[in-house]
Amino acid sequence: MIDSEDIISLEDVAFGYPTGGFELHIPALGIRPQERVAVIGPSGSGKTTLISLIAGLLTPRSGHVRVADLALSAASDTHRRSFRIANIGFVFQEFELLDYLSVRENILLPYRVSNALCLTRDVRDRAAELAESLHIADKLGRYPRKLSQGERQRVAICRALITQPALIIADEPTGSLDVETAADMLDLLFTVAEQHDATLLVVTHDRALLDRFDRTLGMRALTAGIHA
């Protein structure tokens, strides 16, 4: 169902990779602001494709993808990139911190790679505050290889939040974590999403965590559609 207040809306979206063999059809999907949504499904079911469409990393063959009032499916690549950097925070499965940057610089990375964002003292202060709130303030000068798994995930979350995005997309952030750490990670994501009024979209394999989300989107393997 699509509501006019949805922050994310997909309508009659069809997507297929040029190599063929996989087709994704989404008749209609709406996600409300500040909603916490889990995306589940077996490998190859299209979870990553779905979030890539929502993030503007992929463009659908047909249909409309709209995020925060921007018609991503119609926007240029440049426009989508600048929209993404300002409005979407990514948390990756392996956290994907850059080993040659300190924790502080990893958090500030979106400001380093974007001409649209300006790295001001306020932004630096915000990075310090984020680090403080996630208990890694004393690690700001360190390099990622010197951090524990838990510290690295906190840095990744700080990086996702530094631009104060309206949408946080986490692609299997608990995939490599044990049950307890995975629960902590989710707690952390829920907390920061709530604190920053952000919508949270989490791809996961872990069905044990699903009851903590507002909604779950299940992807049917290699087929067309989503069932809520």
Partner: peptide, 16 residues
């Protein structure tokens, strides 16, 4: 390549 992919996900332009 993965680093560049991450940057692209974040929103880094091709030019950057």
């Amino acid at each position: 390549a993965r680093e560049m992919e991450i940057m692209s996900h974040i929103g880094c332009s091709r030019w950057t």
